[in-house]
């Protein structure tokens, strides 16, 4: 199963990680059971989801957006699903219920 991975002698002693910042290579998104989906139309850009997210997966994207009430925004919010573990904290904290939480069946 693991024949393509390095052998014991090729690893640093004690499995020390000598390449800092490589946690992005670990796709923790596959731990998720429920997927948060931001509704940019309902979203008021308060950024509470960005503040509360324990994994830093809320992405702020520079992009113009006009919502259904005619309000213009300079940004939209998106989620890095490669690393979102689906904890639901953003869903809980969102003051306007703009984040849906949808069960993912894999």
């Amino acid at each position: 199963m693991s024949s393509s991975l390095p052998s014991w002698s090729e690893l640093p002693p004690g499995g020390i990680i000598v390449e800092p910042g490589n946690s992005v290579e670990r796709h923790t998104g596959d731990w998720r059971t429920f997927k948060p989906i931001i509704n940019n139309d309902k979203c008021i850009r308060c950024m509470l989801c960005w503040v509360y997210c324990p994994d830093g997966v809320i992405r702020i994207i520079d992009q113009e957006y006009v919502d259904s009430r005619g309000r213009k925004w300079d940004i939209i919010l998106d989620i890095d699903y490669d690393h979102c573990k689906g904890c639901g904290i953003c869903v809980e904290e969102c003051p306007v219920d703009a984040i849906d939480f949808v069960e993912e069946v894999k």
Partner: peptide, 17 residues
């Protein structure tokens, strides 16, 4: 030269270490 020691290892890594 930052490193991480005593990290978590999944079943693909623990045995070799």
């Amino acid at each position: 030269k930052p490193v991480t020691m005593g990290t978590i290892t999944d079943p693909r890594w623990y045995y070799e270490i």
